[in-house]
Lab assay of single mutants.
Amino acid sequence: TTYKLILNGKTLKGETTTEAVDAETAERVFKEYAKKNGVDGEWTYDDATKTFTSTE
């Protein structure tokens, strides 16, 4: 399943996707990605669109 991440950081904005077996796995991948890029925001998830959003 393809999951999408929308980053709305103070210094980094953008989108990326990952293939994962479930939302929990995708969330771990995306949170590590955000951390590596210095984004520490509030997380939301929309199951209908398989989209995570992190907003600082």
Rank of each mutant, 00 (worst) to 15 (best):
D46P: 01
A48F: 10
K36M: 13
G14Q: 14
K31A: 05
W43T: 02
E24G: 09
A34D: 01
F52H: 01
K35C: 10
G14I: 15
R28C: 07
W43H: 01
K10N: 10
T25P: 00
L5V: 03
E24S: 11
G41V: 05
V21Q: 13
T16R: 11
K4G: 03
A48V: 11
T49L: 07
K50P: 00
E42T: 14
K10L: 14
D40N: 14
D40E: 13
R28A: 12
D40G: 08
K10T: 11
T1G: 09
A26N: 00
F52M: 01
T18S: 04
T53D: 01
I6A: 03
G38S: 05
V21D: 12
D40I: 13
T1V: 11
Y33C: 04
K36H: 09
A26W: 01
N8I: 14
A20N: 02
T11D: 10
A23K: 15
A48G: 08
D40M: 13
A26H: 00
V39L: 10
G41R: 02
G38T: 03
F30D: 00
A34Y: 02
Y33G: 00
L5T: 01
A23R: 14
G14K: 14
A20H: 03
K50T: 03
Y33I: 07
E56A: 07
K50Y: 08
K36G: 06
V29K: 08
L5Q: 02
E24F: 10
L5N: 02
T49K: 06
E24R: 11
G41T: 05
Y33P: 00
T44A: 10
R28E: 07
G38I: 03
V29M: 11
G41H: 04
D47N: 09
A48H: 10
S54V: 15
G14W: 15
T18R: 04
G14Y: 15
K31G: 02
T44N: 08
V39P: 02
E32N: 07
T55D: 08
K36C: 11
T44H: 11
T51Q: 03
W43N: 01
Y45D: 00
A23W: 15
T44M: 09
Y45A: 00
T25A: 13
V29D: 04
E32F: 06
T51P: 00
A23S: 09
Y3C: 03
T44Q: 09
E32A: 13
